[in-house]
Write a protein that binds this DNA or RNA. Structure first.
Length: 162
DNA sequence: GCCAACGTTGGC
DNA sequence: GCCAACGTTGGC
């Protein structure tokens, strides 16, 4: 269960690149490739046991109904240096980084569950619990963000075992 | 330190 | 595909 001190997060991913179905198949994954300092700081603040909401972004209106919350994950390992920053063959390669001075970090996440029905972004507007959520702020591009407990509990209602 | 130019994100 | 909003870069 959730112990005191558990924090809640939401991470975005483009399902055409990496989806919750990929996470389900792999069971765990290193959440790498994030190249924004604010998001990086949140990744580093993640602790084992923290709960994570998975959001599918950049899903066109012609796609699968638009961007949506896809399911749940949890943090199993705190962030370590993101290996892709050192890999010149990776799109995440950052020539300014070295192993002595890494800049980008990635925690390991574990699949928890995929929602039976996607929770579409369009359905979130007007939800009282989410009225201050960064996810819904116009122009927000932050791909890792903290959730308040009431925001998280709102998303929890869409899990199968709640 | 300012800010224009640029590249990217991501909803629509 | 469009484009507004954003973050970063780099000249000054």
């Amino acid at each position: 269960m959730m112990e005191g001190g558990t924090q809640f997060w939401l991470v975005k991913t483009e399902p055409s690149v990496y989806s919750i179905y990929d996470l389900k198949r792999e069971a765990t994954t290193s959440w790498d490739g994030v190249r924004n300092y604010q998001a990086r700081n949140f990744l580093r603040a993640m602790k084992t046991g923290d709960r994570v909401v998975i959001y599918h972004s950049s899903v066109g209106p012609k796609g699968s109904g638009g961007p949506h919350v896809a399911g749940m994950a949890s943090v199993i390992t705190q962030a370590v240096p993101d290996e892709t920053q050192f890999d010149s063959n990776s799109s995440g390669f950052d020539p300014k980084c070295s192993r002595e001075a890494p800049r980008w970090w990635s925690p390991t996440l574990r699949f928890v569950e995929c929602f039976e029905t996607p929770l579409y972004r369009s359905a979130l507007f007007g939800v009282k619990e989410l009225e201050h959520c960064e996810l819904l702020r116009k122009g927000s591009r932050l791909s890792v963000l903290p959730l308040t407990s009431s925001e998280f509990i709102y998303f929890l209602k869409f899990t199968s075992n709640s």
